[in-house]
């Protein structure tokens, strides 16, 4: 086990170096790199000082090492979309909202996906199965932003049941949230820690539509995967054995088949955190969710390169690390995985 983890960590190094080279190249392609740090109010001398401090007149390899050491020191440039604070500070500010949305979406997707997948496989080739399969295909084919617009149109504009944008109701917040402390930055968690039930319910109402949107395509993926791995497992001998000793079908499926069919699903769920971060860019923009995704689209609109590069670097590293965790957990959960 330990050698496996060490090997996996060593494999991480070239990937991380590659990501840093990629982002570095992008900052050099997109015009003057000093513009990342400059703002319109600066004089020419101030710009020259920046150029000098970034070693822009040295050769490219030296530049890379200076850039990399700046990244390690936490100097990722300034963020003009957020009052010129350091990019790292913006990331810390916007990340909790994204994390909260992602966790809720994965939770919804896993529950729904496993349920629908099991249902579909145990009713193979019947109406339930066909409906679920078509729904799953719709889920991967419908653009996430169209899904979001449909939900907003139906539940906000037409029915008026749920709020369409933002994390909480601003008016409600100003009325009921006196003495609010921000602990984690995740609104639902914070409202519970503050003991503020009104804001918690309001937060739940606000998270339903964006998390459903984000979960939708993942539900489709999990359902399809769960269905096929259930069908594979159901043919195995130990299932026949469980049936022949007279266990009720419910227990055969729930206890014996589903547990083993869950293993491939678990990997996909682990990997999907990354994909969800990508999908979150669009979802957060539509629902005005104050997370990393919306922050980066605002940076795109304002042509601010430093936040975009910060976003790419941060998400890439996050995804690489989470896939590391998934791999290790996977080896731990499934003893059949060959370590080596």
């Amino acid at each position: 086990m330990r050698t496996y983890i060490v090997r996996r960590l060593l494999l991480l190094i070239p990937v991380l170096i590659g990501i840093s080279i990629f982002v570095f190249c992008l900052t050099r392609i997109g015009g003057d790199p000093a513009a990342l740090y400059a703002n319109p109010h600066m004089t020419d001398e101030q710009r020259d000082i920046i150029r000098e401090s970034m070693h822009l007149d040295d050769d490219i390899l030296t530049q890379y090492f200076y850039w990399l050491s700046a990244i390690f020191r936490g100097d990722w440039g300034t963020d003009p979309t957020n009052g010129d604070v350091p990019v790292t500070q913006s990331i810390m500010e916007f990340f909790p909202a994204t994390l909260e949305l992602t966790i809720v979406s994965v939770f919804i997707a896993v529950i729904l996906g496993i349920y629908l997948g099991t249902l579909s496989s145990s009713h193979k080739d019947r109406a339930v199965d066909h409906t679920t399969r078509i729904m799953a295909l719709v889920g991967v084919s419908l653009p996430i932003f169209v899904m979001a617009l449909v939900l907003q149109y139906v539940f906000y504009s037409y029915l008026g049941w749920l709020p369409a944008v933002y994390q909480y109701d601003v008016v409600l917040f100003s009325r009921y949230a006196a003495g609010w402390n921000t602990y984690t930055g995740m609104f639902l968690v914070d409202s519970l820690l503050n003991g503020n039930l009104v804001m918690f319910i309001d937060g739940v109402k606000h998270i339903i539509l964006p998390s459903l949107t984000l979960a939708f395509s993942l539900v489709a993926v999990i359902t399809r995967l769960m269905r096929s791995s259930m069908l594979e497992v159901m043919d195995l001998d130990y299932i026949k054995a469980a049936r022949s000793k007279g266990l009720p079908e419910r227990q055969v499926i729930g206890r014996h088949a589903r547990r083993n069919a869950l293993i491939p699903t678990a990997t996909v769920v682990g990997m999907s955190f990354g994909t969800l971060l990508g999908g979150a860019v669009i979802t957060e923009t539509i629902f005005a969710w104050p997370g990393l995704g919306r922050w980066s689209t605002q940076a795109i609109v304002q042509l601010a390169t430093a936040p975009i590069m910060g976003f790419v670097l941060f998400t890439a590293v996050l995804i690489v690390l989470s896939s590391l965790v998934v791999d290790i957990l996977y080896a731990y959960l499934d003893p059949r995985v060959k370590l080596g």
Binding site: G18, I21, I29, G274, G278, V281, M309, V312, I319
Partner: peptide, 18 residues
């Protein structure tokens, strides 16, 4: 490995951004 470790939409986003 490097390219596949980043979701393609974020990768593309970074490239068009510059």
């Amino acid at each position: 490995d490097v390219f596949l470790s980043i979701p393609s939409i974020i990768l593309a986003l970074a490239i068009v951004a510059v």
